[in-house]
Amino acid sequence: MLYVFSGLPGTGKSTLARQLARQLKAVYLRVDSVEAALLNAMNQSVTVEGYAAAYAVAADNLKLGFPVVVDCVNPIAVTREAWADTAAACAAPLVNIEVICSDLTEHQRRVELRHEDKLNHEGQWQPPTWAQVQDTADFYQKWQIPRTVLDTAQGSPQENFRALLSRLPDA
Results as ranks from 00 to 15, higher is better:
residue 82 A to L: 13
residue 50 G to W: 04
residue 74 N to T: 15
residue 65 G to D: 04
residue 60 D to S: 13
residue 49 E to F: 04
residue 43 N to F: 12
residue 17 A to F: 03
residue 20 L to D: 02
residue 161 F to S: 04
residue 128 P to W: 00
residue 60 D to A: 12
residue 78 V to D: 15
residue 40 N to M: 07
residue 121 H to Q: 05
residue 161 F to Y: 15
residue 145 I to V: 13
residue 2 L to Y: 01
residue 159 E to V: 11
residue 4 V to G: 04
residue 13 K to I: 12
residue 86 T to G: 02
residue 127 P to Q: 13
residue 119 L to S: 11
residue 121 H to A: 02
residue 97 I to N: 05
residue 88 A to P: 00
residue 91 A to G: 12
residue 171 A to F: 04
residue 70 V to T: 11
residue 45 S to T: 13
residue 116 E to C: 08
residue 18 R to A: 07
residue 136 T to D: 07
residue 66 F to N: 15
residue 74 N to P: 02
residue 87 A to E: 03
residue 111 V to P: 10
residue 101 C to I: 13
residue 21 A to P: 01
residue 1 M to L: 11
residue 84 A to Y: 06
residue 167 R to F: 07
residue 19 Q to K: 13
residue 42 M to H: 12
residue 30 R to W: 00
residue 9 P to Q: 10
residue 116 E to G: 03
residue 157 P to S: 11
residue 95 V to G: 01
residue 106 E to K: 12
residue 103 D to R: 06
residue 163 A to N: 14
residue 29 L to K: 09
residue 72 C to I: 07
residue 148 T to Y: 08
residue 51 Y to T: 00
residue 161 F to R: 09
residue 127 P to K: 10
residue 71 D to N: 08
residue 61 N to Q: 11
residue 159 E to H: 13
residue 73 V to I: 14
residue 38 L to A: 01
residue 165 L to M: 12
residue 154 Q to K: 10
residue 142 K to V: 11
residue 171 A to M: 12
residue 26 A to L: 04
residue 49 E to Y: 02
residue 155 G to N: 03
residue 26 A to T: 03
residue 76 I to T: 14
residue 5 F to Y: 07
residue 114 R to W: 06
residue 97 I to D: 09
residue 171 A to T: 09
residue 80 R to S: 00
residue 132 Q to H: 08
residue 148 T to Q: 05
residue 49 E to S: 05
residue 137 A to W: 08
residue 60 D to L: 14
residue 102 S to T: 14
residue 130 W to V: 09
residue 35 E to F: 02
residue 150 L to Y: 02
residue 91 A to P: 00
residue 3 Y to A: 03
residue 118 K to R: 14
residue 136 T to M: 15
residue 105 T to W: 07
residue 88 A to W: 06
residue 11 T to K: 02
residue 115 H to V: 09
residue 18 R to N: 03
residue 90 C to E: 01
residue 57 V to P: 00
residue 132 Q to P: 01
residue 10 G to Y: 04
residue 135 D to N: 08
residue 115 H to I: 01
residue 162 R to K: 13
residue 168 L to C: 04
residue 75 P to M: 08
residue 56 A to T: 12
residue 39 L to M: 14
residue 47 T to A: 14
residue 171 A to R: 04
residue 156 S to T: 15
residue 5 F to Q: 09
